[in-house]
Amino acid sequence: MNQTAIKYAREIEALFAKYPEEHRQSAVMPLLHLVHQDNSFISKHAINDIAEIVGISTTEVASVVGFYTLYHDHPEGKYRFQICTDLSCALQGADEFLRALCAALEIDPGGTTKDGLITVEEVMCLAACDKGPLFQVQGKDGISYHERQTVESAMQTVQELREQEKHE
């Protein structure tokens, strides 16, 4: 049974309407985004399902997952804090910000907090270079930007997510 096909039946129909009929492979990335958004990673199972839905091999879908940095093939934190440490942000103290935030969360860059809620990753330029230090949060609400950050403001976001988690 293709769980993914059942769960996203409506979305799949809309996606297939977006691309020419003989090019359903184009729906691969949007489908991966849907699955990632709901599960915060993409399982082998989902990869099989998606391959079947668009009619390509599992290997092809897996290679797409491996190629793009916003797709993850194993579970980590529910929310990923992706901090830009690229050139312009580094000139505004992004490396120090990364270290300080990780210290406050008691993890190393790339690590996940004990409660499993937050993973901190270093990423390349996010097209907000005038507003560093900054990070984006990738989670179940898609991706949102948090600009002109301090450790305090970032920890406040962490706190809000922890509160939200308690109520779910």
Binding site: K18, M29, L32, Y68, T69, V123, M124, C125
Partner: peptide, 10 residues
């Protein structure tokens, strides 16, 4: 007009 999202690749 349709939108298509990438997934992090310069």
């Amino acid at each position: 007009i349709h939108t298509h999202l990438g997934a992090g690749a310069y």
